[in-house]
């Protein structure tokens, strides 16, 4: 039992009222008909599973019933910030301090997901901290 700050209700609420809804900031390809199968599959099925900072969508299910975003640390379960939909996080894995402390693994090369291209083994290796 802990409290989560709802940016719409503007106060801390019991965790019981909330529900997680997966990775945040997924951008749907603008033109699904012309996108490659690989990129579409990446958008549809592949999600980040980082060690460290993760941005997630949560819903205040039994309160205002609005979706919002949480920046959460997957190793300590610490919630670093919550912010409304449409806004960008102020704490990211690229934040230098966070990257140094956590040895965060992030996707690059335009791919949303770490390991989306298994043939590229370097993407699957951990970034040294």
């Amino acid at each position: 039992m802990f409290h989560i700050f709802c940016p719409y209700c503007d106060e801390r609420r019991e965790e019981e009222e909330f529900h997680p809804n997966g990775q945040a900031h997924l951008v749907r390809p603008a033109d699904p008909d012309s996108v490659s199968d690989e990129a579409w599959g990446d958008y549809l099925f592949f999600r980040d599973n980082p060690r460290g900072i993760h941005h997630e969508m949560w819903v205040h299910r039994l309160g205002c019933r609005k979706f919002f975003n949480i920046t959460r640390d997957t190793t300590t379960y610490e919630i670093l910030e919550t912010y409304p939909m449409g806004e960008q996080p102020t704490i990211t894995a690229e934040t230098a301090r966070v990257r140094h402390e956590q040895g965060v693994q992030t996707a690059d090369g335009g791919w949303q997901t770490v390991g989306a291209r298994p043939e590229n083994s370097t993407l699957n290796e951990e970034t040294p901290s």
Partner: peptide
């Protein structure tokens, strides 16, 4: 007025 959990319902 708040929307919250009452017993196990909303």
């Amino acid at each position: 007025a708040v929307g919250t959990v009452f017993a196990k319902t909303s």
